[in-house]
Design a protein around this nucleic acid. Sequence first.
DNA 1: TGCTATTATGGTATGCGTACCATGAAACGC
DNA 2: GCGTTTCATGGTACGCATACCATAATAGCA
Lengths: 336, 336
Amino acid sequence: MPTIRDVAKLAGVAPITVSRVINNSGYVKDETRARVEAVIDELGYVPNMLGLSLRSKQTMTLAVIITDITNPFWTTVTRGIEDVAQANGYSIILCNTDESEEKQEQYLQMLLRRRIDGILMVPVTSKADPIKLVKKQNIPVVVMDRHVPGVDVDIVRSDTEEGAYQITKYLLSLGHQRIAMLAGPQSTSTATDRVDGYCRALRDAGLAKRDDHIFWGEFSIEAGYKTAQQMLTDLPDVTAFFAANNFIAIGAMQLLKEKNKRVPEDIALVTIDDIPPGFTLAPFFTVVTQPALEMGKQAAQLLLNRVDGTVNGVCQEIILPVQMIIRASSGEHISP
Amino acid sequence: MPTIRDVAKLAGVAPITVSRVINNSGYVKDETRARVEAVIDELGYVPNMLGLSLRSKQTMTLAVIITDITNPFWTTVTRGIEDVAQANGYSIILCNTDESEEKQEQYLQMLLRRRIDGILMVPVTSKADPIKLVKKQNIPVVVMDRHVPGVDVDIVRSDTEEGAYQITKYLLSLGHQRIAMLAGPQSTSTATDRVDGYCRALRDAGLAKRDDHIFWGEFSIEAGYKTAQQMLTDLPDVTAFFAANNFIAIGAMQLLKEKNKRVPEDIALVTIDDIPPGFTLAPFFTVVTQPALEMGKQAAQLLLNRVDGTVNGVCQEIILPVQMIIRASSGEHISP
DNA sequence: TGCTATTATGGTATGCGTACCATGAAACGC
DNA sequence: GCGTTTCATGGTACGCATACCATAATAGCA
């Protein structure tokens, strides 16, 4: 593969002149430019970013660390990020942690070695260490969707506690008194925030929080299935399920169908994070949705501002509004 | 950010010795190793891959060029790729072309500059040039899902022509005689293959191919919506729609619902590429599915084999089998 | 004891593009 | 016509990790 020196030699100029032609910088006589460009075409020369990155200390690369690209919520967030990155000349490296601390750690190490310019991440746990590690290397980080106590870091997330509050309140308004929560992993703030919102709504309604109604699990279809199974056994008198995310709801729904439990007639089911419109023929879940594309775009924009120094004050926390959409799965008002 | 020289200086050794400690290569006295490791921890030194890549001519990076990460089919393919890449120490750079030749060209140029080790791509068109361009730079390429005449290139795709044939044949077996095809962009082989399969089935059934029953469009929800709209106007006597992919089907479905056309009672609707199980409560579409995860994994594995030289003979074309799943959207047998 | 292996460490050069400084020629102003 | 810009081009060094070759010390062996 030819280098800038090969081009220079063949065109009878110095490497720096070729560089000037490529980057349209400095003075180059039209005649010289034409000659250099001819040689570039002839050799099929493509500049090597590595040399440049080594000196400029910029790789024009951002990392996206999410839990699982398979979840349409993250897909949409990622799409928003990629759009903004691409428009600004940045590439993105995609990392799926599957909520594994070990994988996250591996990815972070690798990304630091790559000298990426910034990281957009959904931290697997609420531990501050991984983020501190990155910040110590002076690499800008934007945390998405979750928050992490004990570090000063930019955050873009939605008001998930409020969403959980609203949707629980809605269930209560329908007459539900025994609402089970199919929560996510207790180590993530999204999971705890949603449980907090749920508890707040119960409290506001004068109902006691019952710990045995909260099942911590994982944000996956399998976990939703299993948790729902356990709930049906442990809590036969529950009238509504509140799944902490779309995948848990899908898993729960699968189980309920198998057990011939009708939704919403036998059990109401609500969740957070929609499935993109169209994927389901008749959208069924009553949900609280987060602006996923917007979250990705804003996070990427904030990160880029940090990277290029446009923003360099204290860290921001951008909290996007959520929206409740009432559909069939929550059912009508029930008699207690 | 400290360099290997900083570590060396502080530990009182030569840079190469630090390198040996990091990479566990060559001879290093235990005592020296301990001292170097202590300094590495103290400084928070992280090796810079750029220097290494510059020399080794390996970036440990693969590119994934797909049309749109928002489509669950590509999401799953990408997930398969990422899994294999990660397991082998490679990172992936994600690129969405949105079927735009211009974006594809931009991405390719950028990727060549980055000296990525290999490319997994879904070419926007059947033109050979972009692939030739990359191959000329000696960068291994694996084409996914589509095929491109005129270049010798590795391909991993599924037997989409056969899938289209089978599903059309199935519609014919139900008594449908007037089947409209909502095709993809004529510039992609996936679209033409599916039309070919559709035509072959008609031919086998002794029916004449009717060009006015084939509507070329795009692989998007919007296109599906529009095409379906036009079809209802132009071809009021059609009894079945064959959407060339899931997004087209979703768009068509949206329109049919708006127009109060019942599926399958008024119009049968079948498609290719499923929506992941669970996303839809009751899977509805009769579809031909492709093994998306497997496609991603095999493509990534093949690419890695090319990259590390394990495979270096003539190019392979891996064709994965498809599977038809009959559900409600195709309906019962109709009377002609 | 003398000589070859083994262990341990370092110097120098390389890969590639560009920042910085330097040089020279032409153009311009008065 | 002379000093000052503007234009045009080049030399050298740098960023970082490592390959290659070289050196030296210790160990092993006859």
